[in-house]
Design a protein around this nucleic acid. Structure first.
Lengths: 333, 333
DNA sequence: CTGAAAGCGCTAACAA
DNA sequence: TTGTTAGCGCTTTCAG
């Protein structure tokens, strides 16, 4: 930088001010132009490490999650975070703890040692977390999770409304009975209360059907894998139920449901309406196309970083709407 | 650090040497112990920004790709890269260019300004790339791509062997004819020569069948989406062909093939063997399970970073083996 | 084996 | 408006 200053015939201070783009000190237009010119000629680029050392801002943020690899809560979140960071000339560290507290500590300290400006602390599945102590006085936003005892804001998908939307879709398609839910709150040994996404979706679903005076014919509480959907729907059919509509709590369950309906010679959409959640790639690949309320991965990642960087981030929860992807499975056209 | 030195009763020099773990200057065991003790008591952590400024090594690397979000070439690559980086106490910047050269330049310069130690330059689909000029004298390894005029090594999946494995699987299951290939080299308007993965896989497939004296009954050149698989297999069946085995060039094509076979009342595995490539989640969800030769995403990411950091990286290509995931679709048990 | 001192490239008092 | 100068926290000659 001193080369630039010398060539422009100004002091390092002046050069620093114009190159850092600061407008809070009056610099003559002439001097400014000379500095820019010199910088261009010398191909000058600021050394952000040095600037970081001096100012302790690095224009760098860390995205720390328990697991980033396992789809689907992966790529699009990063993508959204990247876009928001890039738009603000920040750069993104990515790290994963694999659920191990020791790894977590190691990573957080590594980031702190590198003077990151803030953290996005993300969870694969929406849930409550305990913020690592080292983050207690760092700038943090929580993504897809929440924590007690912190002023850090949370960004969460709006699952209740997703549930409402799914139910309304069926109502609007004329379903007035024979609606079965597959998957439920996702009660398992590990999650006796159900999974947050399940609980919230069910809340929305039941609220809307109840409000419309439609009785949900049944809820099959089970795991959320294809084989569970297949088994439960088969069981339903074998028990002589005549479902008119299926609300599957995710796309994998819906895949299983498709297979079961096909086994019994029933046509999705015509004989039985199906709506689902997640809007994964699978939903578009199935025939007929699966109508599904999508997780807003991209927006979640993006919103979290915006919140982190646009420092109007009071505590509390931001709900991100879940978009419904209309295809053919929710009813005959 | 000077606090630590003072408390340990040594000079900053001595403290620096023991805290940076350097063994090339004899420090008395006593002094060393006192320094460590003092550091522990004060909760000392080195400021890596300062160290970076002084030494210009930041223990930081950048993973730059055209697209990281779009599955499937996403999470597992990052995961592998992260593991390798973490094992060497490095930290990983992630960035994506979205195929835009200007964005690419901006990102590369941003990373250079932050003094990253090296770059992993990755492509979504295996192909030749042009390395951005700014990277010409940086430490780089290419992931899932290659470039002329560079000494940077490439890490690529071993597609030819994947093709060979798929063919051998069918041969070993007793298939001696009626083998159809769905997808081929993936010739489209944009890729008149076919896609690299397609070309390489086909090379392996044809080599093995030819070597065994088995004639491939037909190759349906088409796009690689589910609907293409569905259409092509239906066309095959309608033309009166009696396929005994299908080699689908990816899992999405196989999904389409499953649907077509089902439409015609044929059972996968029993009536028609199916093998495929990619080993995506889908392969495990299908019924019967789809036997598929997987892209080694994790290993690719990991190998690239190892190559970058373990500086025995001469130029040339490293082929990473593609693991075959045996399920039920390749033949009756 | 240890310490004094210079300096990595930049920013920000403070003085002019 | 601009320039002088002292560091940010660390490493590393070089002299003891």
């Amino acid at each position: 930088m001193s080369d630039v200053a010398r060539r422009a015939g100004v002091s390092p201070t002046t050069a620093s001010f114009v190159l850092a783009g600061r407008r809070d000190m009056r610099i003559s237009g002439d001097a400014e132009e000379r500095v820019r010119q010199a910088a261009r000629e010398l191909g000058y680029r600021p050394n952000l490490t040095a600037r970081g050392l001096r100012t302790s801002v690095t224009r760098t943020i860390a995205l720390i999650s328990d697991t980033i690899a396992t789809t689907p809560f992966a790529g699009e979140v990063i993508h959204g975070a990247l876009d928001a960071a890039g738009a603000r000339e920040h750069v993104l560290f990515v790290a994963e703890t694999e659920g191990d507290p020791q790894t977590e500590t190691r990573l957080v300290e590594g980031m702190l040692d590198r003077q990151v400006d803030g953290f996005v602390y993300a969870a694969m599945y929406t849930r409550e977390v305990r913020l690592p102590p080292a983050l207690h006085d760092a700038k943090v936003v929580l993504l897809n999770c929440w924590a007690r005892d912190t002023r850090a804001p949370s960004v969460l998908p709006d699952e209740v409304n997703a549930g409402r939307d799914a139910a309304r879709l069926l109502l609007d398609a004329g379903q007035l009975g024979g609606v079965h839910v597959v998957g439920g709150r996702h009660v398992t040994r590990a999650t006796p209360e159900g999974v947050w996404a399940g609980v919230e979706r069910m809340r929305g679903i039941e609220e809307v059907f109840a409000g419309a005076g439609v009785r949900v014919a049944g809820v099959a509480e089970c795991d959320w894998q294809p084989e569970d959907g297949h088994r439960e729907v088969l069981r339903l059919l074998d028990a002589g139920a005549v479902p008119r509509a299926l609300v599957c709590l995710n796309d994998r369950l819906a895949l299983g449901a498709y297979q079961a309906l096909q086994d019994k010679g029933l046509r999705v959409g015509d004989d039985v309406a199906v709506v689902s959640f997640d809007d994964s790639d699978l939903a578009g690949w199935l025939r007929p196309g699966l109508t599904s309320v999508g997780l807003p991965h991209y927006r979640l990642g993006r919103t979290a970083v915006e919140l982190l960087l646009d420092d109007d981030a009071g505590p509390g929860v931001r709900h991100v709407p879940m978009p419904v992807a209309l295809r053919a499975s929710h009813g005959p056209q």
